[in-house]
Amino acid sequence: MKVLVTGGAGFIGSHIVDQLVEKGDQVVIVDNISSGRKENINEKARFYQIDITDSDLLNVFERERPEAVIHQAAQIHVHTSVKEPMFDATVNILGTINLLEACRKTGVKKVVYASSAAIYGNPEYLPIDEKHPVAPLSGYGVSKYTPEHYFAIYRQLYGLNYTILRYANVYGLRQDPRGEGGVISILVDKYLRRESFTVFGDGEQTRDYIYVGDVARANIMALSQGDGEVFNVGTGVSTSLNEVVKRFNEIAGYENKVEYGPEREGDIKHSYFNNGKIRRVLGWQPEVTLEEGLRKTYEYYQDIYRKMDKEM
């Protein structure tokens, strides 16, 4: 199968590409390298440096004629969606419509779309299942949810199949530890630099941390299953930030200094997924435990930081 992956040079997208290549599929990557990195690009994939909002995207689809698309490219920062709502909506909503039009015009059979836990807002109950009310707290949540309606419309009007995957807190290799990265990638950076880490609140806030390799596998399984369906992708396990810090102390072999600050307004206290539906329908389940995933992530960046130190 020929699969086009948007954002295929990015954190999650590059892992999806690697698994597709390993499976023997032909892979085409579309990425503007705004947050992705060229060193993440699998050498067996064909790469186009182009933005999903660009009108030339259709030319790529006409040239490559992919059978399926995995859509990972997005504006991913909550603070950007607040400060630059037009940019956020342009990339996540209009960019997705541009992609859907290219799919429609070139006969793509299936699209797998990366949505987010951010669409749910403050949980009304836990664990969160796919029937939970949608109440985003930011423009980012809105701009990730809006395309879900477009996918349903394109299926109804044009027969374009889709599967939507709503991610929990994804972590792992290749996640950018600077800026507004995931909390785990930021923790890795702080531990390797032996810098203190600030926890906003008491540290008892909980999240569902899912390893990137497991998320990539869910995307690939969704290429051939779950048409017209929405799935939560998470472990179904609630883990506090204090517990994550404790695990890092054990992995790093020293106790890092943690400073506690005031809670940030608008932060969600507790959130984790019910993953029963994706288990039943796709036969997917997480394979990497939190301890194993944290260790893999820490050791990956430990090697990178050692090389950086040698080069300085």
Rank of each mutant, 00 (worst) to 15 (best):
M1Q: 10
L4N: 00
V5E: 01
V5W: 11
G8C: 11
A9G: 04
I12M: 14
H15M: 02
Q19W: 02
L20G: 02
K23E: 10
G24P: 09
G24A: 10
V28A: 08
D31K: 05
I33E: 07
G36W: 02
K38V: 07
E39W: 05
I41C: 04
E43S: 14
K44G: 06
Y48L: 06
Q49S: 11
Q49G: 06
I50D: 03
I50P: 05
S55M: 10
S55H: 08
R63Y: 08
E64D: 09
E64Y: 09
R65C: 10
R65G: 01
P66K: 01
A73W: 04
A74C: 07
S81C: 15
V82Q: 14
V82Y: 13
K83Q: 08
K83S: 11
M86H: 13
D88R: 03
A89I: 05
L94M: 15
N98Q: 15
L99F: 10
L100G: 01
L100R: 02
E101A: 05
R104Y: 09
K105W: 03
V112A: 02
Y113H: 09
Y113F: 14
P123C: 00
P123I: 02
Y125R: 14
I128A: 05
K131P: 00
H132C: 03
L137M: 13
K144I: 01
Y150K: 10
F151Y: 08
A152F: 06
I164S: 02
R166H: 08
A168K: 06
V170R: 03
Y171H: 10
Y171P: 04
G172R: 01
D176L: 03
R178A: 00
G179M: 11
E180G: 00
G181F: 00
D189P: 00
R194V: 10
R194G: 04
E204M: 11
Q205M: 12
Q205H: 13
T206F: 03
Y209D: 02
I210G: 05
Y211T: 05
A216C: 08
M221N: 05
A222E: 07
Q225H: 12
N232A: 03
L241W: 09
N242C: 06
E243V: 05
K246R: 15
R247S: 13
G253S: 13
N256R: 12
R264M: 13
H270F: 06
F273L: 06
F273D: 03
K277I: 00
I278M: 09
I278W: 09
R279Q: 12
L282R: 13
L282S: 08
L282Q: 12
L282H: 09
P286G: 09
E287K: 15
V288M: 12
G293M: 07
T297L: 07
T297Q: 04
E299G: 06
Y300H: 14
Y301E: 05
Q302G: 11
I304L: 15
R306C: 02
